[in-house]
């Protein structure tokens, strides 16, 4: 017995010296069952219920609208702003209620303002992009504009300006379509109450700045860069010559070729790829970026242009139907 007692610390030491090391993150055994139980209880009650913010006791629509304008540093006509926040679905719901109670109060919805705002946003963004990206083809400018005026982007902007709780709609939480429409209506209301320049600066500061950190070239789909490049270069009266300037690992999985494009024996661009054709295509893309002034090292897009910029008629590269 004494022998065993003496040996126990030795065994313990052996065990301590060789711990079982695991790389996996230690998540306690109770975490998953707890989360499952919480979810089960939530389901039993009938899902998470979100109460509309405007049914709370501490809610004052007038104060909210005032603060909304102050937050954005804009002067809105208060009636127009309320109209901009009134969705069609809310008006229909209210009219049904009024029919039941047999009285009639006319309400205005924001459909007109949405239309005005939508037109203004599209026209202004088009002008702005044409000025900021002077050499970029019109197809690309259109692509960027479509991205900026897409429902997802406008809804995100609208949500982060705090419209979600103020919007008068039949449903809560409101969907992206209503959020985007409300943003357009707000621009329409601003256009009516403070003039074109304030509305333009509003769109610039909240919508166009979403281009920050984006690659503009992604919005110009180019199917065949090589033929586009040759057609552009042909107009200038020069020819472009591709040359293989590097290759490693031929006939292996990791083959790498490098192709340079030369005009008058001067290198314009270079590209690499796992085959010569891909490398040539990449080089052509690189050259096109240089021509369009949107290379990776381009200066950041100017987000500080004042007023409504007028695009000067410049020789913009036209893309032939390729």
């Amino acid at each position: 017995m004494a022998l065993i007692r003496r040996c126990v610390p030795l065994f313990a030491k052996v065990v301590r010296i060789h711990p079982v090391t695991t790389q996996a993150q230690k998540i306690h055994r109770w975490v998953a069952p707890t989360l499952m139980e919480l979810k089960r209880r939530e389901k039993k009650v009938g899902g998470k219920k979100i109460n509309p913010r405007n049914t709370f006791l501490e809610w004052n629509l007038e104060a909210e609208l005032y603060a909304f304008a102050q937050r954005l540093n804009e002067d809105f006509d208060s009636d127009l702003l309320l109209q901009a926040f009134t969705d069609r679905s809310y008006v229909i719901k209210e009219e049904m209620k009024q029919k039941e109670l047999e009285f009639d109060i006319k309400m205005k919805d924001n459909r007109e303002l949405v239309e005005i705002g939508d037109q203004f946003i599209n026209a202004y963004i088009q002008n702005y992009l044409e000025v900021v990206l002077p050499k970029f083809p019109m197809e690309g400018v259109k692509g960027v504009r479509k991205f900026l005026t897409s429902e997802a982007i406008l809804a995100n902007v609208s949500l982060h300006l705090g419209t979600k709780d103020i919007i008068l709609a039949a449903e809560y939480p409101v969907d992206n379509f209503i959020l985007a429409n409300t943003f357009k209506a707000i621009v329409g209301a601003l256009l009516d109450s403070s003039g074109e320049e304030r509305a333009a600066h509003f769109v610039r500061d909240f919508v166009i700045t979403q281009l920050q950190g984006q690659d503009v070239n992604e919005y110009l789909p180019i199917e065949d860069p090589w033929s586009m490049l040759t057609s552009i270069v042909k107009k200038d009266g020069t020819t472009i010559e591709p040359r293989l300037i590097g290759e490693t690992g031929r006939n292996t999985l990791l083959a790498c070729y490098r192709v340079g494009l030369y005009v008058d024996k001067k290198m314009v661009s270079s590209g690499f790829g796992e085959s010569v054709a891909i490398a040539k295509e990449m080089a052509a893309r690189e050259a096109l970026k240089k021509i369009f002034g949107t290379e990776d090292t381009m200066k950041p897009i100017n987000f500080k242009l004042d007023g409504i910029p007028k695009p000067t008629s410049q020789t913009r590269y036209q893309i032939t139907a390729s």
Binding site: L161, T209, Q212, F303
Partner: peptide, 15 residues
Amino acid sequence: PLQNGIGRYVCQLQR
């Protein structure tokens, strides 16, 4: 949030 500060600064506390 929302590239705050590139265009104009908006205080994020709403109420």
